[in-house]
Design a protein around this nucleic acid. Structure first.
Lengths: 336, 336
DNA sequence: CTGTTAGCGCTTTCAT
DNA sequence: ATGAAAGCGCTAACAG
């Protein structure tokens, strides 16, 4: 015989008061006699009463939950964003409704709709999202901030990594180290991060080295792609003395290819990455990379969302940007 | 002027039908004239109607959400469990309400209570949880399965890693490689995983080597602790020819200490870890370790939960166990 | 096939 | 200080 959890009505009856009083007592409102308050508390304990938050949300039109929809991302990134969001959410007592979405944009729409009535706001990260998409698919009046993509339209908040600036910084570092012929390994075609990094790279090599037609090898952010690119460079070196991979995993793969061929890093060819995943400091040699403060992106996105929720008629929230930070390790430092 | 999202009533009015018909049409029930169905759909589109899932949950007494409360864990583990859970949940269209909890057991209680009325079931992972705790703090009738701890009491489901078996397997491997004096670096005092691994280690060295008083150095699962333990071994070697770290990060730290002192791994001293974090394959030499199928633990936990939800009066769900798998890399293979 | 009615569990005016 | 009643948005009998 499975007895379901007691409702506030059971508590009220047990304490011999109205549900109204029970509610007031349970929520610590002022207008309750200490006596009845105690009776209610006692009854609640006796019945092991646990409030039904779903019902409460309905009446209060507030869920104390924020929705998080993320693409199906690989370990590190995923957990870091969540950590950042969670840290901030936890501090103010909010829960996270997660919708890790695999698949395409239509699934994003689904995920967003599934949030209606279950969250007070939305943190959204999905490739290839723009202002039009948002106005088209966001339930009216659901505060939302977009992560990872810069949303230009008004009325939408976003926070993104400055990939372009990061790439420029890396090229500057490489140039400062004395490298003169820098190749890049790009990420997946059409990927926003990859595009930004490539653009920054191109701009920087043009500015700093006068190189208007740098070597850019195709990649897809995987270690294997990095390895292949490394092999390609070995096959047709073209004077390349440094390679800037669009992310760390490709850099790692590239280094493996180089080292398999007996080319020393950084003395033969320098290698740099982007992201600063944990592995970066453990490979041989440790990898120079652009550290992205992923967790902070989550935290700041959350805080922006809180502000949005607090004042729904807020001033136009300009897109925020997060600067990656250069981390120099031995993969680019010319020794001797 | 911020117009809130339309409700089903608005749709009904717009389509000039009752809310009942609107509801039926929207949910694709059979008993609706195609004509009215179309009218309703049209109205819904026109008003950009998005159903309020919170309200729906209340009436249906089903949330299509499962709660996940996890301790505040470090990257890899966290994201892997979630990935495993999410993969399975996504397949059947369920959402995840996350409660990553920092802090102590009382916070666990909080987190659990906060799930009432918002989820159909609970996946719970929290250090030091037992059957008593569960019966005491679980809202009545909330199906729950515990991850990472073996719950012996009846009426509760659990799924845990076989730490003891894993440790035994590792010792067996080490012995097979020819190592005879194996030290262990333990995890944090009182940690369940650590305790299991140490117990397995002790049992195995006793069985296999007749060593009833092996060296066990204190650690806390951190890389630094591993380094310190490595240094301690160097300071007082006692004939140790292999060290089994309670997790990979300590193994990595230990190897760093050894290599800093010029001791070769594995020829001077072999090192093994536990977990198979991504870093394990990238350190030099690559680390032999016990691979734990974390994502699978999540998936299986979820499936167990589904079964629990489907048949609330299920047979006694015996605690499940997940076997780690030996992954041999170069940190333990005697060369030549 | 369709509309009316009654809740789901909770909070909150509005009287008393 | 307390209770009665309305209602959050939706679905599910129950009648027509």
């Amino acid at each position: 015989m499975k007895r379901a959890t007691a409702t506030i009505r059971d508590v009220a009856r047990e304490a011999d008061v109205s549900v109204a009083s029970a509610s007031r007592a349970l929520n610590g409102h002022a207008n309750v006699t200490p006596a009845t308050r105690d009776r209610v508390i006692a009854a609640a304990n006796k019945l092991a009463y646990v409030p039904h938050l779903g019902a409460r949300s309905l009446t209060m039109a507030r869920t104390n939950t924020i929705g998080v929809v993320l693409p199906d991302l690989f370990g590190e990134f995923f957990s870091e964003v969540i950590r950042g969001i969670d840290r901030a959410a936890h501090a103010v007592g909010l829960q996270l409704l997660l919708s890790n979405m695999h698949g395409d944009a239509s699934e994003t729409t689904q995920a967003i709709r599934a949030m209606r009535g279950r969250v007070d706001g939305l943190l959204l990260m999905s490739p290839g999202i723009d202002a039009d998409f948002l106005t088209a698919h966001l339930p009216a009046g659901l505060p939302t901030v977009v992560l990872g993509s810069r949303i230009e339209g008004e009325g939408h908040s976003s926070i993104a990594i400055d990939n372009e600036g990061g790439a420029r910084a890396m090229v500057a570092h490489l140039v400062a180290c004395g490298y003169r012929r820098i190749a890049m390994i790009s990420g997946p075609e059409g990927n926003g991060d990859s595009d930004g990094r490539c653009a920054g790279f191109r701009a920087a090599v043009a500015d700093l080295l006068g190189d208007h037609d740098p070597v850019v090898l195709p990649g897809d952010f995987s270690e294997d792609a990095g390895y292949a690119a490394g092999a390609a460079i070995l096959a047709d070196r073209r004077g390349i003395d440094a390679v800037f991979a669009g992310n760390d995993m490709m850099a790692v793969g590239c280094m493996a290819a180089l080292s398999a061929a007996g080319i020393a890093v950084p003395n033969g060819i320098a290698v740099a990455g982007f992201d600063d995943v944990p592995i970066a400091r453990y490979v041989q040699p440790p990898l120079t990379t652009m550290q992205v403060h992923i967790a902070e992106m989550g935290t700041r996105a959350f805080e922006t969302l809180m502000a949005l929720i607090a004042s729904p008629d807020a001033p136009p929230p300009s897109p925020q940007t997060l600067e990656p930070e250069l981390v120099v390790r031995r993969s680019t430092r010319l020794s001797g």
